[in-house]
Deep mutational scan, measured.
Amino acid sequence: HNLTITQGKLFFHYNPKLCLSEIHKMEEVSGTKGRQERNDIALKTNGDQASCENELLKFSYIRTSFDKILLRWEPYWPPDFRDLLGFMLFYKEAPYQNVTEFDGQDACGSNSWTVVDIDPPLRSNDPKSQNHPGWLMRGLKPWTQYAIFVKTLVTFSDERRTYGAKSDIIYVQTDATNPSVPLDPISVSNSSSQIILKWKPPSDPNGNITHYLVFWERQAEDSELFELDYCLKGLKLPSRTWSPPFESEDSQKHNQSEYEDSAGECCSCPKTDSQILKELEESSFRKTFEDYLHNVVFVPRKTSSGTGAEDPRPSRKRRSLGDVGNVTVAVPTVAAFPNTSSTSVPTSPEEHRPFEKVVNKESLVISGLRHFTGYRIELQACNQDTPEERCSVAAYVSARTMPEAKADDIVGPVTHEIFENNVVHLMWQEPKEPNGLIVLYEVSYRRYGDEELHLCVSRKHFALERGCRLRGLSPGNYSVRIRATSLAGNGSWTEPTYFYVTDYLDVPSNIA
Results as ranks from 00 to 15, higher is better:
D503Y: 08
S248Q: 14
I377H: 06
K253S: 05
L369C: 08
C267K: 09
Q219K: 10
S283H: 15
G308P: 15
L379T: 03
T288M: 09
D291I: 14
D408P: 01
K287C: 06
L293A: 12
Y478Q: 03
P238V: 04
S243F: 13
A394R: 13
V443L: 07
H461F: 13
K287P: 10
L505W: 06
R400V: 09
A263T: 09
S479V: 11
P205S: 06
L440W: 15
A309E: 10
E420S: 03
S492A: 06
D503K: 01
S486L: 01
N326S: 11
K317N: 06
Y441V: 09
V501N: 08
T307I: 06
C391K: 06
K432S: 13
E265N: 14
F419L: 10
L235Q: 12
W493P: 01
F337Q: 11
C266I: 14
E362M: 06
Y500Q: 05
G234M: 13
L464S: 12
N421A: 12
N422L: 12
V480S: 03
G368F: 13
K233V: 11
D204T: 02
F289N: 09
Q429Y: 13
F419V: 05
V439F: 06
C468S: 05
L440Y: 12
V393M: 11
N477M: 08
L473G: 01
Y441R: 00
K236G: 15
V329Q: 08
E362A: 11
L213T: 14
S304R: 03
L455W: 05
K432F: 09
G467N: 02
S444M: 06
M427D: 03
R483D: 00
V439T: 13
G322Y: 09
L505D: 03
V329R: 06
Y292N: 09
T288W: 09
K460T: 13
V423M: 12
G325I: 09
K460H: 08
S251T: 15
R376Q: 08
Y478H: 10
A335L: 11
V299Y: 15
T303F: 14
F246N: 15
S492K: 02
I276C: 06
N383P: 02
S262M: 09
L321M: 11
L228A: 02
R286C: 06
A220K: 05
Y498G: 07
S284Y: 03
F289Y: 05
F462P: 02
G325N: 14
K317V: 04
E290C: 15
R400G: 05
S283K: 15
N490V: 08
K233W: 02
T343I: 06
T241A: 11
F226E: 13
T502G: 10
P387N: 03
H352N: 15
A220R: 08
E433S: 15
P338T: 11
I377R: 00
W428L: 00
Y500S: 08
P354T: 09
Q384H: 15
S268R: 15
L473A: 02
V480G: 03
D273E: 11
E282C: 04
R481K: 14
R390M: 14
A381F: 01
P270G: 01
S262G: 02
T494I: 05
N206G: 08
E247V: 13
Y498R: 08
Y230F: 09
A484H: 00
F285N: 10
V457R: 06
V359D: 01
E224A: 11
E465Q: 11
T415K: 12
L228P: 08
E362I: 12
H294L: 15
I377M: 06
E351I: 03
E388Q: 10
K287Q: 06
Y448P: 10
W493C: 01
N255F: 04
P434M: 04
S367R: 08
S251R: 06
H371S: 10
T210L: 08
K236C: 03
Y448K: 04
T307M: 06
T401N: 01
L232W: 11
A381C: 00
T494L: 02
F462A: 05
T272G: 09
V334L: 09
R471H: 08
K302W: 11
R240E: 07
S304G: 03
D450Q: 12
G306A: 06
N435H: 03
A335K: 10
P387A: 11
S262Q: 03
E224V: 15
P387Q: 13
L228E: 15
P270A: 09
H461A: 12
G374T: 10
A330K: 02
S320F: 12
Y478M: 01
N255W: 14
Y292G: 03
L321H: 07
C266R: 10
F289A: 05
H454F: 01
K271S: 04
P244S: 09
I438E: 02
S444D: 14
V443H: 00
G264W: 11
G449S: 11
D408S: 03
C266D: 07
K287R: 06
G467K: 06
T502C: 08
S262R: 15
F337S: 09
F298S: 07
V345M: 07
P346K: 11
N255V: 10
I482F: 01
V424Y: 07
E495P: 04
N435A: 02
V296P: 06
S305R: 04
H371F: 11
E452F: 14
F289E: 05
L277A: 07
M402A: 07
D408H: 02
V296Y: 07
Y259M: 04
